[in-house]
């Protein structure tokens, strides 16, 4: 069942189903609605952008109709100041203190600026936000973010939108070992096996956006990712056998016929 984690700082943070979905890259509202209906994600991310007609977006109306929990992000923010302001605007607009905190180092790599990230995280935690920072898969940074009172850490598996999966699984394991707060694999998911691997490495949830929205069949991909995170979680709990360099017979050697 879904774990509800009580934190020392911030509001109790419920992960919900361990598949989280990002709306980035969606091709139509109708497809996105079908994806969410099929996958019942724990959280759905949105960005904050200028309202064309000074009113709420059609996407927001659809997500409200679906009754999903929203996780606004600070995507595109290149400084701690911008990210903090965007988080505060998201809280006003969406009535949630959850924020997926992104402070992007440069627009080419889209990798996190961890210096700005730590600064923005401290400010937002002090302001009562439940902060979920998008970060590099670095256990030292993850521990610092946890110390600041972040509710989870969201290490990247590979660059945003790259679909490369988890290029350094050991790094995700090190992050897992470094913090007691939830670890949510963010960025890089390409297909179901990547999501299963994240959970097998000990992650508590997986966020996928373009893996779904840009798949040839987004609804089918969303379903596969939901099954994959569930399978990966079961496998993690089941305790996999250790890897060995040599074979180990599974059939008994005793009782063999002499032929």
């Amino acid at each position: 069942m879904t774990p509800v984690l009580s934190l020392e700082l911030g509001e109790p943070f419920d992960i919900g189903h361990p598949l989280w979905i990002g709306t980035g890259g969606m091709t139509s509202l109708a497809t996105m609605a079908s994806v969410i209906e099929a996958a019942s994600p724990g959280l759905v991310t949105v960005s904050m952008r200028r309202a064309g007609d000074l009113g709420p977006s059609g996407l927001l109306a659809m997500l409200r109709d679906q009754g999903v929990r929203l996780l606004p992000n600070t995507a595109g923010c290149l400084s701690a100041r911008e990210a903090v302001l965007t988080a505060r605007l998201a809280r006003e607009a969406l009535d949630t203190s959850l924020v997926k905190l992104e402070v992007i180092g440069d627009e080419r790599s889209l990798l996190p600026d961890v210096v700005g990230l730590l600064s923005a995280a401290a400010e937002l935690v002090a302001d009562g936000f439940t902060v979920l920072p998008y970060t590099t898969a670095d256990p030292v940074v993850a521990a610092r973010l946890a110390d600041l009172g972040c509710a989870a850490v969201m290490p990247l598996g590979s660059p945003i939108g790259s679909g490369q999966g988890i290029t350094d699984p050991a790094a995700i394991e090190r992050v897992r070992a470094a913090v007691a707060i939830p670890v949510v694999l963010d960025a890089g998911i390409g297909t179901a096996s990547d999501a299963a691997l994240a959970m097998e490495l000990g992650c508590d949830a997986v966020l996928a956006a373009t893996a779904i929205t840009r798949a040839e069949q987004p609804v089918a991909m969303a379903r596969s990712l939901r099954l994959a995170v569930e399978a990966g979680r079961l496998a993690y709990g089941a305790g996999r056998i250790p890897r060995q360099t040599t074979a180990r017979a599974s059939s008994p050697l005793a009782g063999r016929a002499v032929l």
Binding site: G22, T23, G24, G25, M26, M32, T45, V46, S47, M48, R49, R50, A51, L54, G55, P56, S57, L59, L60, L63, L70, P72, N73, A75, T86, L89, A90, A93, L94, I160, G161, A187, L207, A209, T210
Partner: peptide
């Protein structure tokens, strides 16, 4: 004046 709402985003 900046007026923002929720849009698609990962």
């Amino acid at each position: 004046v900046e007026v923002l709402t929720a849009f698609q985003g990962g």
